[in-house]
Amino acid sequence: MKEISGHTRLFGILADPIHHVKTPQRMNEHFARLGFDGVCVPFHARPAELAQVVQGLRQLQNLGGFIVTMPHKTAILDLVDEATPVARKIGAANVVRRDADGRLTAHMLDGEGFVGGLLEAGVDPKGRSAYLAGAGGAANAIGFALAQAGVARLTIANRTTAKAEDLKARILSLLPDARIDIGTADPSGHDLVVNGTSLGMRDADPLPLDAGRLTPDQLVCEVIMQPRDTALLQAAAARGCRIHHGAPMLACQIALMAEMMGVRA
């Protein structure tokens, strides 16, 4: 491990739970490649204390910024001074830059990272039909990104239909020609099936969709990184589906996150 000194720039990731996060490892590898004197560490912050934690982070003079993951991606927007137009439209953010005066600016990169991961795996979403489970933080960003990538049809399924309808309306306000449907737990009839929820992080979690309706011609995708093979991916593989893990979404964001937080080679 590199030596940490009073000159080292600090970065963190806010999450609850925290055990599953892989971002600090990947970010520290990125800093090492750049020769940048920085370190990223996990910060376990529960929702009830999030505002206090963020207020404290403002005061740390050697903090360059922090990454935000489940369940804080939506709540963080109310705690920063500024958010990029994309983050405001999506309604969530996953990276925050701290300026020298303590001012906080948020941005959302999940969607770019997810689509980038698909492209690196040789899967172009353009012209395909996509089913998205969830309408929260990460799902919001992925929904926008899939529509911007040119999917032929996007179906949004969420336990609370009103949230799915809201996401549909926000995407259409930016991309009025997009075809967007509100779906059920049935993912059949789509080329891409994406879990954009946190269901699968815990052993007792129910599946985010009806896996019994999956067919071998579908690609089933995760945003969860730990466990690597979630119950959904295991169920999809058992039904003969191709699977796409959560890690590529993060890998495609690391350099973008670092740059957002002011890290340069």
Rank of each mutant, 00 (worst) to 15 (best):
T160I: 10
T230N: 06
A138K: 00
V193Q: 08
R98C: 02
V115W: 01
N28S: 08
G136W: 07
A164F: 09
G6Q: 03
N158K: 07
A235W: 00
G246A: 09
D16T: 04
D217E: 15
A251L: 15
S129Y: 06
P248E: 02
K163L: 13
P85K: 13
E3F: 15
R46V: 12
D186H: 11
E29A: 15
P176F: 11
A255P: 03
G12Q: 03
I13K: 01
G136N: 07
M70A: 14
L50C: 10
V53L: 15
G35Q: 11
K163V: 00
D177G: 14
R264N: 14
F43T: 06
L167I: 06
V151T: 08
A251M: 11
E120K: 14
F114H: 02
P227Q: 03
N140A: 11
L233I: 10
R159G: 10
H30C: 09
L109Y: 04
G134K: 07
R202E: 14
N140R: 10
Q226H: 14
D203V: 13
V96N: 00
P208A: 03
L118N: 03
L167Q: 08
I67T: 13
I171D: 06
V123C: 12
S198H: 13
K73L: 02
T215Q: 15
N62V: 00
F36A: 15
R46G: 15
R179E: 13
D99P: 05
L172H: 12
R153V: 03
D78E: 15
G38S: 02
A185V: 11
A87C: 02
D110E: 05
L199F: 14
A51T: 07
F114G: 04
S198K: 09
R97Y: 04
E165G: 00
R228W: 14
Q148L: 13
N28M: 05
P227F: 05
H190W: 12
G189A: 14
G116P: 10
P85Q: 09
R239C: 08
Q59G: 06
S188F: 04
V80F: 03
D203L: 13
H72R: 06
I180N: 10
V193G: 07
A211N: 05
M225S: 04
I182K: 12
F11W: 03
V41L: 13
G56C: 04
T197D: 10
V21A: 04
G56V: 01
G200R: 12
C241D: 02
R202Q: 14
L77M: 11
R202I: 00
V53Y: 01
I171S: 04
N94H: 05
R103S: 15
A152H: 02
P206K: 04
V39P: 03
A75E: 14
Q218C: 06
A87K: 03
G38D: 02
D166L: 13
D124L: 01
L34W: 08
I180K: 04
L207W: 10
M225K: 06
R103D: 02
I67V: 14
M249V: 09
A92R: 05
R239D: 07
L34H: 09
A162T: 14
A258L: 02
D166S: 15
P85R: 13
I224L: 15
L214G: 08
D110G: 12
Q218D: 11
D177V: 02
I156A: 10
D78H: 13
